[in-house]
């Protein structure tokens, strides 16, 4: 066998061997990696609904984006039934675009359910506002925000958060009775 055939052949054999070993390792590890990823992603949402088993990310339309909503998802339980919706909000308040107020808010059974603060944007006003929002009972003031209403003459931060939450509420109320069960 002359050199012109021998060298590429040798390289090819080595390449195929290595490719085989790699795909074998991939076969064993890929499933575990994917399962861990899903578990990590769901952990943030299990705080809202402790019986969450599946979730489906939904495209946010323009109304939501204008209100300050970043992402939206439907939560389903073990039996693939719809539990509620979770929205991620990034509201631009007094501290400006660089320091938005970030939180996730969930709705269930036709009303606000729970919210988790992700960041109040390094602004003391944002922090104070989130404390005020909690009220005396957790999430108390949240459930009293009327859908689609923004208060005039109030602080920039309050208006931004109010607009975001009421946009979510309006969006949720419009569709929550008609969301189908979970399919892959």
């Amino acid at each position: 066998m002359n050199k012109l055939i021998k060298l590429p052949l040798f390289l090819g054999v080595v390449g195929c061997l290595c490719g085989g070993v790699l795909s074998l390792t991939n076969y064993f590890t890929a499933e575990k990696i994917k399962k861990d990823e899903d578990r990590r992603a769901n952990a943030a949402y299990i705080i809202h609904f402790s019986n969450l088993a599946h979730r489906k990310d939904v495209q946010v339309n323009e109304t939501l984006v204008n209100g300050g909503i970043v992402s939206k998802l439907y939560a389903y339980d073990e039996s693939n039934e719809y539990i509620g919706s979770i929205y991620t909000i990034s509201a631009v308040g007094y501290a400006g675009k660089q320091n938005p107020i970030k939180f996730t808010i969930s709705f269930s059974d036709g009303k606000p359910h729970h919210y988790v603060e992700l960041g109040h944007g390094e602004s003391s006003q944002g922090a104070a506002f989130m404390t005020w929002l909690k009220g005396d009972n957790n999430g108390d003031r949240l459930s009293n925000l009327e859908a689609g209403k923004t208060e005039t003459g109030s602080s920039i931060t309050y208006s931004a958060v109010n607009l975001a939450v009421s946009t979510c509420l309006a969006d949720y109320l419009a569709e929550y009775t008609s969301i189908p069960a979970y399919t892959e």
């Binding site: 290595c18 070993v21 790699l22 390792t25 590890t29 575990k32 990696i33 861990d36």
Partner: peptide, 14 residues
């Protein structure tokens, strides 16, 4: 390169 890919995959998983 094969060995590094294998080590990387095993690290990621376990």
């Amino acid at each position: 390169a094969t060995l590094v890919s294998i080590v990387d995959m095993l690290f990621h998983a376990y």
